[in-house]
Amino acid sequence: MTRVRAAVPTLVALALALAVGVALLLVVGAPPLETFRLLVEGSFGSASKISATLLAWSPLLLASAGLVVTFAAGLWNIGVEGQVIMGGIAATWVARTVPGPGWVLIPLMVLAGAVGGLLWAVFAGVLKTHGNVHEIFGGLGLDFVAAGLATYLVIGPWKRAGVASTSGTDIFRPEAWMPEFQAFGVGWPVIPVILGLLSVLVVWMLLRGTLFGLRLKAVGSNPYSSFLLGIPTNRYMLGAFAIGGALAGIAGTVQVAAFHHKLVPAISGGYGFLGILVVLLAGFSAVWIAPIALFFVGISVGSTQLDLQLGLDSAFGGVLQGIIVLFVMFGGAWSVRRASGRLTPQEEP
């Protein structure tokens, strides 16, 4: 009963978000029902569309799972974008320089991506713990540096033979492509999906069943009490950055090895920021990440159809995602206010 009641503000918020979405569509003169039908069809309407949606789902799962860890430690890890990019760059470097068959190359690229993302995240972490730079500013700054580095590599040292173009590096040799599983006439991104789901499962177990996870939550909720309890708080914050960064970096590997098959400047696909929305909507817990992330990539992938069929800008998908998060967070804040209104004030006299 209490569970049902706790879900009420979220359901009300979703309904309100939908209503605002419909209102927006009416204002721009688009038929709402047709729009939502196209959204669903564009993401789940055929085998190839479902495959594309799952391929987009995987990096979002990885980035979101990493964010759950850093949020547990009380950190606003805004630098996921940069960490995804650095993972993609590291994986690309392996693909370009290491010879050998796919079964050597692919694990190496995953490892390299993890290391690239990890180092970038720990960089932001050290700036916070030792340089007193807030992780939001450090992470945001490093996002720009990573994006700049990717662009530089694409048009500079790793440019395509003869032409420098922001459309990307040369396509990787086939051994550096993540293998797909053929069925129903299309290739399925089995390895990325396994990596994504595994990351969610590992993070869930880490936070639920381990001493590391418990200490991390304590540091996130009250660093000072945790310090007095004898927990090395800085080390735990850096540990959270390392895990979050490694998972984001693997998302970068998925982007280069399974989706683009090359490095492009916009390699992160915006999953770093979208992951923040997913985790906010999931209430900072690993449990609901998978369905919410699927819902979000469904909107993203499906919205590309809107442009073609209705002449509606595909940015509508992003608008819808943003509205949902705003309303759900507002609903959450509202229910907290309502609950705390019943308590007596806890101020010290």
Partner: peptide
């Protein structure tokens, strides 16, 4: 509650931490 205990963490969890 500000310097000794951690909000959102249970009695059992506190004893594990300590």
């Amino acid at each position: 509650l500000e310097e000794g205990l951690v909000q959102g963490i249970s009695i059992a969890e506190h004893l594990v931490l300590a």
